[in-house]
Write a protein that binds this DNA or RNA. Structure first.
Length: 579
RNA sequence: UGGGGAGUCGUCUAAUGGUAGGACAGCAGACUCUGGAUCUGUACGUGAGAGUUCGAUUCUUUCCUCCCCAGCCA
């Protein structure tokens, strides 16, 4: 059982020892940094990755992680991991742990620079008091609904709160009492005093503290007032002496507020906020709300369901950290909204796994083949190359015997023109083994083919013939007596539409793909896979890349298909059928 | 219809006044004991107009389209 507990072995990655390489491609953020370095504004850079621990990280976060940690590495600076934990209602320790695990797995290291916004609650409180004393903040008693009314609309300015001009001393006292827990949730808030007529709604006296009698996952019950994002984020950045605070586009019109707080507070450090476009991917959703819904309503098995675009899902699916990093490098960083073709991500895993994954043979939809002229009871150990892309991967022995399984799709009774595989009277090569020729197809009473009777040519051992004879097809196979029975899970896109949000009803779930998971059983793989460990990755010859799923037990191996191989024949066949 | 952003091959992304380039996807071919990989070739783009200039993706201007903002979420 121990072999199922952690990754290791031939097909696996040593995540911890992996180190992300430095990027060579430029982007507009690097241009800014280069200017800042050149002008002497900064001697070095400090960035940060600031997730809120209210969900699992996804591939979109990976883009941000690669950007922030990548920049730090490239410029010899550092990147902090900071949990933006200012909303105890939504946050959870489970998420903190998963985020740390995922960032590490991606190959990045924050060293001792692990922080929490909640670390700064005392400082934040003092800054808030300072704001009140400067008459730049006040305690407001408007209800939620009133607040919305007073805020105005996109086209009209708002109105002043009746509490806006209350004396500083009164706000001070009220704020103190808010902190002491004298008011219930929602009764009072602390607001910045900026400009209710601003065309930028964020500047219309934004709330900076609200009351929440909720236990915080780190500070417990010490606080019942919690700071809002806009106030917390810029102050946290300043405390950590961040030089470049990189966030996504939707925060662009929060920047004036970010700058306002730091200007008014006259913080020693005033980071520059830079916005870039978040990642969108075809055939999937990236919003935390939707991913959470998929998990909670059991459309998927969990955050790490192999169909999820989460880091843990992709990892379980068999993606490597290197593939994800390469992908993030490949897609670039810019300010225009964009949706990347999922095929680009698949290209990146294939490229990486092609170099690394050990080749093995596995039959997904078995068809029994009896080699009639092969001696009963004889077993030969044949040599098989582990990875033609990597000489150092060596070879292994695989057993061959009279009864084998081949892929059902590799036989056609009535083969189309360009079909190179097995058919009555046809000869093909069994990879690493012999040429075999199909003599007869045995059928049951319903006309289903139950097995094939073939003959082999003993002179072709290893898959060669000296007489110049050519065979067009090469098939993978496993010896029936030696094969390991297992389950294989074939995944397809979670959604049927390239843009899942394109719906008639407005509910993206109507685009869920009913066939996104197909479980195949029994499948047969070569006996060597018995020692496979969770997350070990393999190429099943001619089929795709697979990895051992965490649902596996020593008695039942389960493999996930990470991605298929490029299937030229499938494409060709489709074209033939169209004609 | 307020404010803030963005428009370059099908999709991402370069070119910062001087030959519009790369990657993915597509197509065609070569090669191959994986119809994998690899290699070669090929097609495809500056949202529109006006202006400045010898020369504009780049500068100016008008227009068009798309995205974000009215949580006591981040």
């Amino acid at each position: 059982m121990s072999n199922l507990n952690e990754a290791g072995g031939a097909g696996s990655q040593k995540a911890a020892s992996e180190n992300a390489p430095v990027s060579v491609i430029s982007n507009f953020i690097k241009d800014i940094i280069n200017d800042d370095l050149k002008s002497g504004k900064h001697a070095g850079i400090i960035t940060r990755f600031p997730p809120e621990p209210n969900g699992y990280l996804h591939i979109g976060h990976a883009k941000s992680i690669c950007l922030n940690f990548g920049l730090a590495k490239e410029y010899g600076g550092r990147c902090h991991l900071r949990f933006d934990d200012t909303n105890p209602c939504k946050e959870d320790i489970e998420y903190i742990e998963s985020i740390e695990r995922d960032v590490k797995w991606l190959g990045f290291d924050w060293n001792e620079h692990l922080y929490y916004a909640s670390d700064y609650y005392d400082a934040l409180y003092e800054y808030a008091v300072a704001l009140i004393k400067m008459d730049k903040a006040y305690v407001c008693e408007l209800t939620n609904e009133e607040m919305r009314e007073y805020r105005g609309t996109l086209t009209e300015g708002g109105k002043h709160s009746p509490h806006r001009d209350r004396p500083v001393s009164e706000s001070l006292e009220l704020f103190e009492r808010m902190k002491k827990g004298e008011f219930e949730d929602g009764k009072l808030v602390l607001r910045a005093k900026i400009d209710m007529s601003s065309p930028n709604i964020n500047m219309r006296d934004p709330i900076i503290y609200r009351i929440r009698h909720t236990t915080h996952h780190r500070t417990g019950d010490k606080w019942c007032i919690y700071p809002m994002y806009d106030f917390t984020h810029c102050v946290s950045d300043a405390i950590e002496k961040i030089t470049h605070s990189i966030c996504t586009l939707e925060f662009e019109d929060h920047r004036p507020l970010y700058d306002w707080f730091l200007d008014v507070l006259k913080t020693e450090c005033h980071p520059r906020q830079i916005e870039f476009a978040r990642l969108n991917l075809t055939f999937t959703v990236m919003s935390k709300r939707k991913l959470l819904e998929l998990v909670e309503k059991k459309y998927v098995s969990g955050w790490d369901d192999p169909r999820m675009p989460t880091i843990s899902g992709l990892r379980r699916r068999g993606y490597t950290a290197e593939a994800i990093r390469n992908f993030c490098e490949m897609i670039g960083v810019a300010k225009s909204n964009s949706t990347v073709d999922f095929a680009m991500l698949e290209y990146c895993v294939r490229e990486d796994l092609n170099k690394k994954a050990m080749r093995v043979m596995g039959v997904l939809k078995p068809l029994k083949v009896v080699i009639t002229n092969y001696p009963d009871g004889q077993v030969e150990e044949l040599d098989a190359q582990n990875n033609p892309e990597d000489e150092s991967a060596g070879t292994r022995k695989i057993p061959f015997s009279k009864v084998i399984y081949i892929e059902r799709d590799d036989f056609r009774e009535d083969p189309p023109k360009q079909f190179f595989r097995l058919a009555p009277g046809r000869e093909v090569r069994l990879k690493h083994a012999y040429y075999i020729k199909c003599e007869t197809a045995v059928k049951d009473e319903k006309g289903e083919i139950t097995e094939l009777h073939c003959t082999y040519d003993p002179a072709t051992k290893g898959g060669w013939s000296d007489d110049g004879r050519k065979v067009q097809g090469t098939l993978h196979w496993v010896s029936a007596a030696h094969a390991l029975e297992c389950e294989v899970r074939i995944y397809d896109q979670l959604f049927t539409k390239s843009n899942p949000d394109e719906t008639a009803s407005g509910d993206y779930k109507e685009n869920l793909n009913e066939n996104s998971l197909v479980k195949l059983y029994p499948c047969y793989v070569e006996p060597g896979l018995k020692s496979a460990k969770i997350e070990d990755r393999y190429q099943f010859l001619r089929q795709g890349y697979f990895c051992l799923d965490s649902d596996s037990t020593p008695d039942k191996l389960i493999f996930n298909r990470t991605v298929s191989l490029v299937d030229t024949w499938a494409k060709l066949e489709k074209k033939i059928q169209k004609k």
